[in-house]
Design a protein around this nucleic acid. Sequence first.
DNA 1: ATATAGTTTAACCAACTAGTCAAAATTAAA
DNA 2: TTTAATTTTGACTAGTTGGTTAAACTATAT
Lengths: 207, 207
Amino acid sequence: MTEKDKQTEEKIFESATEVFIEKGMDGARMQDIADHAGINKSLLHYYYRTKDHLFNAVFEMIAGQMFKKFAPVFDEKLSLEEKIKFFFREHITFMQKNPGLPAFLLNEINRNPARIKKLIRQIDVNKLWLTLEAQHKDELKKYNITKQTIPQLMSTMAAISVFPFAARGILEGIFEKMDINFNDYIEERKVFAADFVIKAIKNDSSS
Amino acid sequence: MTEKDKQTEEKIFESATEVFIEKGMDGARMQDIADHAGINKSLLHYYYRTKDHLFNAVFEMIAGQMFKKFAPVFDEKLSLEEKIKFFFREHITFMQKNPGLPAFLLNEINRNPARIKKLIRQIDVNKLWLTLEAQHKDELKKYNITKQTIPQLMSTMAAISVFPFAARGILEGIFEKMDINFNDYIEERKVFAADFVIKAIKNDSSS
DNA sequence: ATATAGTTTAACCAACTAGTCAAAATTAAA
DNA sequence: TTTAATTTTGACTAGTTGGTTAAACTATAT
């Protein structure tokens, strides 16, 4: 029955996702995943031939989810400032709901950079820039943003958004001593981050 | 001979550091570390009883190095703006020389948050704030920086500095398609980061 | 020289791990 | 109902892994 197929295959995939996120590729055990899904270990190999196959399926799904969150920025009909606000609000909210993803991705990418490069190859970076340029020609000129400064600016935005989740363990440790709640900090960050970036680029012409 | 002791123990420690950074705690093999040090595996257990002992020694050393780089900011006799410039220059230069540390630390902290919390407990966060306040009372007021906004600001600075190294695999993948060299990007970032943050806080009163 | 203490090694082990396989159970088709 | 195909299982295996142990080696002190 195709129904049951989907059920078990999905159950395996979901269990694998949870276990891989928690333990990482090296730390995860096929037996753990099987137990978590309430099935026999052999079934894992029946649906996904090897641990590597299973991990790749999970990895590509998660990486895809993460990158997809950047896409709307390139077609929303918003001003540049509103796009910045939109990006931080959406991206941070997504990670709020999936707090384990950033650390998982960064770790596995560093452990095996080739895996992500295969996915990046599918992105047409130049086209994205052209889209942005077409949509915001005047604003980009006003803020002094060029094709040369975009990498610094974009990576800075990604950094401000992603880092708190990747470094959650450290931040929580420090915040404990200051009576700050991590979730409150994250909620606050959605607007802080946008304001911070907008203020920085607004001031650019005066330097 | 104490000379020889130090030699082998250090050789083990250095090899362990390299292997753990490359493979992580779970991925590293005691045999790898022994081979790398050119000694018998049993010697590892002679000097560091278990893999966990050896890993902890390495982890605490690296975490210490990383945190130490934040310290000078609190006693250098510089203006606030100069301190920001100083921080990014020094911190990024340090990571340039040790590009594997950020990813290693973030990963292992997420795998076992308790480990880092033990080290953080030794830091007197409140004292650091008081020091900063005493040294820069007027500037903090001028830039609208308070004890409440410090966490967002500091974590943002850490993010901008650390993230490129933690996400190196992704960035390199994207940069390849834009003919950008990662090392050039990092060199450029030392001043970009400082300028960016300074511009953001300068503009704060007008919001 | 020889006894003592510390260092290094080779051989070994028990526990674990990803993956296999043939048989059993379940489902679909005839 | 019988047959064929698919799915699930339990038992097993070959290879790894962290860790142990007793013996060999080295250096120091008497």
